[in-house]
């Protein structure tokens, strides 16, 4: 509780400072609306029903792209991390595509998939795939051989080795990759929605920019931050629930 109070002071201080600075009229309040105005904009947008729809659309895109991209990244990473032939064929392909910044693909995705859901999901998928691939590839290919030796010498059969040893041993590395990808998913999503869409948090940020409604725009920016924060915390919570040993391993070594 004390901890919480301490952590909040900084944020509250920032809000007060923001409020005071914009009320002094030193800066044009149209450009720099105070937090009270941003909050009231958020409230009215929520009541009108527009904001919940945007959040729903954005979260759905982020989740769909993240889940698909993670599954693909995990799978390709694991297979090429452990099986020589796949490594030889797949890894160079991934390495050639990986340096392309995903933002550079936004226009192409729109040309290919249109302004609807497909282009957004594709871009998030693309953005998430590579970091997850890297973490899965490294995690799986660098499993401490002592774990495998120990398991083999207590009698595990080869076919059980994957699920019982290799995957859990690689999990800490993989989890780090997944967590990085969550914030990446939001970055890519905003870029994709700003470039062209009818709905979504990123779309509103650019739309209010065009009509110069800075309070609403800032409201959506804050909202975006909140969504990223919630997603990260939810992920950490789920990991700690599902894998109680994970926290212990990370803290110790």
């Amino acid at each position: 509780m004390r901890q919480f109070a301490l952590r909040s002071t900084g944020i509250i201080f920032l809000l007060i400072l923001w409020e005071l600075v914009s009320r002094t009229n030193l800066i044009d309040p149209g450009l720099f609306p105070p937090p009270s105005q941003v909050i009231s904009a958020l409230v009215s947008l929520t009541l009108s029903g527009q904001l919940p729809k945007d959040v729903f659309a954005s979260v759905l895109r982020a989740v769909a792209g993240f889940v698909l991209g993670s599954i693909a990244g995990l799978f390709v990473g694991a297979v090429s991390g452990r099986i020589r032939a796949f490594d030889a064929v797949l890894t160079p392909v991934v390495q050639v595509l990986r340096p392309i910044p995903v933002i550079a693909l936004v226009p192409l995705a729109i040309v290919w998939f249109g302004l609807g859901e497909a282009s957004k999901i594709f871009l998030v998928f693309w953005g998430v795939f590579f970091p997850v691939w890297v973490s899965s590839y490294l995690g799986i290919s660098r499993v401490d051989k002592n774990y495998i030796w120990a398991a083999r010498s207590i009698g595990i059969r080869r076919e059980k080795l994957w699920l019982q040893v290799i995957v859990p041993a690689a999990l800490p590395t993989i989890i780090t990759g997944l967590r990085t990808s969550i914030s990446l998913a939001f970055i890519v999503l905003v870029a994709a929605e700003m470039a062209g869409s009818y709905l979504g948090v990123g779309y509103r940020i650019s739309a209010y920019h065009l009509v110069f409604q800075i309070d609403k725009m800032m409201g959506y920016i804050v909202l975006m931050g909140a969504l990223g924060f919630i997603a990260d915390r939810t992920f950490a919570y789920l990991v700690n629930r599902a894998l109680p040993w994970y926290q212990l391993s990370v803290n110790q070594d």
């Binding site: 010498s153 009698g155 041993a169 212990l248």
Partner: peptide, 20 residues
């Protein structure tokens, strides 16, 4: 020819499975 549970190994670094 290969590892077998008839020959048990104890390692210096223990090598317990941290996920179990």
């Amino acid at each position: 020819t290969e590892p077998n549970s008839r020959r048990g190994v104890v390692f210096q670094s223990f090598v317990l499975f941290p996920w179990k």
